[in-house]
Computed example of a mutant assay.
Amino acid sequence: MESTGATNALTRPRTARSLDGYRSGARVRAVAGVALAAVSGLVELTGLLPHKVTASGAGLGTALFASGLVLLWHSRRLRRTLAAGPWRAAASVFVTRSAAAPAVVLSDPESGELTVLAVHSVRRRYRVVNRDELWWARDPDSAGFVIAPEGGGELIWAKPVWTARSRARLAAKAESVGLLERTATAPRA
Results as ranks from 00 to 15, higher is better:
3 S>E: 10
4 T>Y: 02
5 G>E: 11
9 A>I: 02
9 A>V: 01
9 A>Q: 01
14 R>I: 13
16 A>F: 13
21 G>R: 09
21 G>M: 06
23 R>I: 09
24 S>T: 15
24 S>W: 15
27 R>W: 13
29 R>I: 04
30 A>P: 02
31 V>P: 11
33 G>I: 02
36 L>W: 01
39 V>D: 07
40 S>C: 14
44 E>G: 08
45 L>H: 04
49 L>W: 12
49 L>K: 09
50 P>S: 07
50 P>I: 04
50 P>K: 06
52 K>F: 06
53 V>D: 14
56 S>H: 11
61 G>H: 01
64 L>K: 05
65 F>Y: 11
66 A>F: 06
67 S>E: 10
68 G>Y: 02
72 L>I: 06
72 L>M: 10
73 W>H: 13
74 H>M: 08
75 S>V: 02
76 R>I: 00
77 R>D: 10
83 A>G: 06
83 A>F: 05
88 R>T: 05
92 S>F: 07
92 S>K: 04
94 F>I: 04
94 F>L: 03
95 V>K: 00
98 S>F: 09
99 A>T: 13
100 A>V: 03
101 A>R: 05
103 A>D: 08
103 A>Q: 09
104 V>E: 06
104 V>R: 06
105 V>M: 02
106 L>D: 02
106 L>I: 02
107 S>M: 14
108 D>M: 11
109 P>Q: 14
115 T>D: 11
116 V>Y: 05
116 V>C: 11
117 L>F: 03
118 A>G: 08
121 S>I: 06
123 R>H: 09
127 R>K: 05
128 V>W: 15
132 D>I: 02
132 D>H: 14
132 D>C: 04
133 E>M: 11
133 E>H: 00
134 L>N: 03
136 W>C: 07
137 A>L: 05
139 D>Y: 06
142 S>T: 14
143 A>D: 15
143 A>F: 10
144 G>H: 12
145 F>P: 07
147 I>D: 09
149 P>A: 09
151 G>E: 05
152 G>L: 00
153 G>W: 07
154 E>G: 02
155 L>E: 04
156 I>S: 08
157 W>H: 12
158 A>G: 04
161 V>L: 13
162 W>P: 08
164 A>M: 03
166 S>W: 05
167 R>I: 12
168 A>R: 10
168 A>L: 11
174 A>Y: 12
175 E>L: 15
177 V>T: 11
180 L>G: 07
181 E>C: 04
186 A>N: 07
186 A>Q: 09
186 A>G: 13
188 R>M: 07
